[in-house]
Design a protein around this nucleic acid. Structure first.
Lengths: 199, 199
DNA sequence: TCCATCATGTTTGCACCGCTTACATTAGTC
DNA sequence: GACTAATGTAAGCGGTGCAAACATGATGGA
């Protein structure tokens, strides 16, 4: 692919590192993700990745940024521009599902004390944040849309983490989506009593 | 204190390790918490802690278990047995405050892929879980108390994490408590329209 | 009282890690 | 075709988790 035969130079080590990092993350979780392991998997010397990522933090941030983009893609795939509570609930379900499908990735994205100055990262998280705000605002013009979108995000985010930590029943996708839909419906019903919300 | 002068044996190394671990956690975060650092702080050889904790995971779990107990204590201190939405909101605020006051500890408790077989840990988390359920059930007998308590916990848990990650305004304690109270009020108003909820 | 036992420390050592420095190779550029 | 910069390698430092093998001393039975 991107590797130029067996030449001294790799070809696209930057991308290869990212790919290797994601693979290791899925296999061994965040603990198994070392720069040396990434280098081994990319078939390159232990210190080569440092040419592309100043330190481990930077690589993790790059992985996280990719995760934010994929999460955003999953959400829009669930519904491109939700306008009803039901449609919003579908997006919420997609959020939690992402966490359960990519637990290690999700933890890298949200659960580690991250470098708040990393550009990739702040841009991607700001995009997600804005995205949630827009969706909630579009679904129902509440008195305080800011507070409402915060509440919805927190609710879904919390559900994701509690499921990840095994504190809630995540045995079947239906169980998960049921809990998420119920919670979102309850919250929206509160702020817009006129809205019809399906269970 | 617990140290028997400068004798060969420490006296209470187990407790000393726990204390040292918590101190290191507050100072350097989870990253700075190594068994060797703990041993140094306890004034003992690098491998001595292994007599009391089989591995690093076990020590972290012990710290986490202590955290769960303190969290529970903080919650009951906020209100021993809440019966009104306002009182429940006070407990929710205490939850988020705990996370912000002990960020590294909170991350150890919830954000790391933990050993789910550790006895201390599962017992302590089960207690917290049951506690939340009892509180919510006591505040208002909803149609589906299980779902409601799940939703409330998730909401508060999510708020805690988003605050921790700097995604929400945590500049002042008032800002934080305002958000938490607003969100809880919205959620409770939905499931019990007759309940009076203060902003 | 003496001494055997055993919990609790220490020492040594291995493999791995992040990261730095110095050096090697090669792709472009004039 | 030589110069330069980008990109790779090799060697090495201090740190880490953890496993043996060994040292110490508190404790309890003879």
């Amino acid at each position: 692919m991107s590797r130029a035969s067996d030449s001294y130079h790799h070809g696209d080590l930057r991308a290869a590192c990212l790919r290797a990092a994601r693979e290791l993350l899925e296999e061994d979780g965040s603990a198994g993700l070392s720069l040396r392991a990434v280098a081994r998997r990319a078939g390159v010397s232990a210190t080569a990745p440092y040419r592309h990522y100043p330190d481990r933090e930077a690589l993790l941030s790059a992985v996280a940024a990719e995760g934010y983009r994929e999460l955003a893609a999953d959400l829009t795939a669930a519904h491109p521009s939700p306008t009803t509570p039901d449609e919003l609930a579908a997006v919420a379900v997609a959020y939690v599902r992402f966490a359960l499908d990519h637990p290690a990735m999700f933890r890298v994205m949200f659960a580690e004390p991250c470098d708040p100055t990393n550009e990739d990262r702040v841009a991607a998280t700001a995009a997600i944040s804005q995205y949630v705000r827009d969706i909630v605002r579009g679904v129902l013009p509440a008195a305080d849309p800011e507070a409402l979108s915060t509440a919805v995000w927190a609710l879904v985010h919390g559900l994701a983490f509690l499921h990840l930590d095994g504190k809630l029943d995540a045995s079947t996708p239906e169980a998960v989506s049921g809990q998420v839909r119920g919670a979102v419906a309850a919250m929206l019903a509160a702020t817009a009593p006129s809205a019809q919300v399906g269970a």
